[in-house]
Computed example of a mutant assay.
Amino acid sequence: METKRSHYYLIVDLEATCCNNGTIPRHEMEIIEIGAVMLNRATWEIDSEFQQFIQPVRHPQLTAFCTELTSIQQQDVDQASRFPEVISNFKEWIYSSFPHYVFCSWGNYDKKQFIQDCAFHNVPYPFGSEHINIKEEFSEYLGVSKRYGMALALNELGIELKGTHHRGIDDARNIAAIYRQMKTQKPS
């Protein structure tokens, strides 16, 4: 029987409210999409996916910059539930089928944004202290100090970017493809 916490890699990518003119300070950014996949450590296949939009409350109107960057439309977030309900759905998805996982993301941004939004909404942080920064591991995998963006990392590995860049669920799938290759093939 498998009891290791890391039987699955929970690969998460978040999109958040943003702007290019300073009208939304970093500490007021809010998650507007959670995209996540469960990458099976034994098969290296994605066993399940989670995607939900979130209605922001601090800056409910998406900026043109945010919409252009993420392709997330105002009606997507207007019709969405708020953070406490979505995080509850997310936890239910995780714990109903995948109790043995480790939280992973491309860089530390996603972890910090979860911590910030949980604190703002007075919701317990849903993950343990363990977090894998795949961006850091990717540089180690290549043996370089350079930090790659996700799209550049895909290109470096010869993997085609699938879906829309800066959409949580698509980026989570692409990060899973990077991690699968890192874990199953030696760098060239």
Rank of each mutant, 00 (worst) to 15 (best):
residue 178 I to Q: 05
residue 159 I to R: 12
residue 74 Q to I: 04
residue 34 I to A: 01
residue 84 P to C: 08
residue 106 W to Y: 00
residue 139 S to L: 07
residue 133 N to P: 09
residue 69 L to W: 09
residue 148 Y to F: 15
residue 75 Q to R: 08
residue 80 A to W: 14
residue 37 V to H: 03
residue 68 E to L: 11
residue 22 G to R: 12
residue 135 K to H: 11
residue 176 A to T: 05
residue 18 C to N: 00
residue 181 Q to D: 09
residue 90 F to T: 00
residue 68 E to G: 01
residue 60 P to L: 00
residue 186 K to V: 14
residue 99 P to L: 10
residue 173 R to T: 06
residue 88 S to T: 14
residue 65 F to W: 02
residue 47 D to S: 14
residue 72 I to A: 06
residue 65 F to H: 10
residue 94 I to Q: 13
residue 112 K to V: 09
residue 16 A to Q: 06
residue 25 P to E: 07
residue 101 Y to N: 07
residue 138 F to Y: 11
residue 120 F to A: 14
residue 43 T to V: 09
residue 128 G to Q: 00
residue 154 L to F: 14
residue 145 S to K: 15
residue 80 A to Y: 13
residue 186 K to H: 15
residue 85 E to F: 13
residue 95 Y to H: 15
residue 114 F to C: 02
residue 38 M to K: 00
residue 71 S to M: 08
residue 88 S to F: 05
residue 58 R to D: 09
residue 7 H to D: 15
residue 27 H to F: 14
residue 83 F to V: 01
residue 96 S to K: 12
residue 52 Q to Y: 05
residue 21 N to Y: 13
residue 22 G to E: 05
residue 77 V to G: 01
residue 70 T to F: 06
residue 140 E to M: 07
residue 86 V to D: 13
residue 135 K to N: 10
residue 6 S to K: 14
residue 114 F to Y: 10
residue 32 I to T: 07
residue 119 A to Q: 15
residue 147 R to D: 03
residue 14 L to N: 11
residue 58 R to Y: 02
residue 130 E to Q: 11
residue 168 G to H: 04
residue 167 R to W: 04
residue 135 K to L: 12
residue 155 N to F: 07
residue 159 I to V: 12
residue 11 I to P: 00
residue 20 N to P: 07
residue 89 N to C: 11
residue 109 Y to M: 01
residue 185 Q to M: 10
residue 119 A to G: 13
residue 56 P to I: 03
residue 7 H to C: 15
residue 2 E to H: 10
residue 179 Y to M: 14
residue 83 F to Y: 12
residue 39 L to I: 03
residue 39 L to N: 00
residue 112 K to R: 14
residue 165 H to F: 02
residue 186 K to N: 15
residue 88 S to W: 08
residue 165 H to P: 12
residue 163 G to F: 13
residue 3 T to E: 10
residue 67 T to P: 10
residue 54 I to T: 09
residue 69 L to H: 09
residue 148 Y to D: 13
residue 78 D to P: 04
residue 125 Y to W: 05
residue 77 V to A: 00
residue 66 C to K: 11
residue 103 F to G: 01
residue 111 K to G: 02
residue 152 L to S: 15
residue 24 I to E: 12
residue 75 Q to N: 13
residue 31 I to Q: 11
residue 16 A to R: 05
residue 168 G to V: 09
residue 20 N to S: 12
residue 39 L to M: 01
residue 135 K to A: 10
residue 114 F to V: 13
residue 165 H to G: 09
residue 39 L to W: 05
residue 144 V to K: 13
residue 82 R to N: 12
residue 133 N to R: 08
residue 82 R to L: 01
residue 146 K to Q: 11
residue 87 I to Q: 03
residue 181 Q to T: 11
residue 86 V to C: 09
residue 97 S to M: 03
residue 49 E to F: 12
residue 45 E to R: 09
residue 86 V to M: 11
residue 55 Q to I: 04
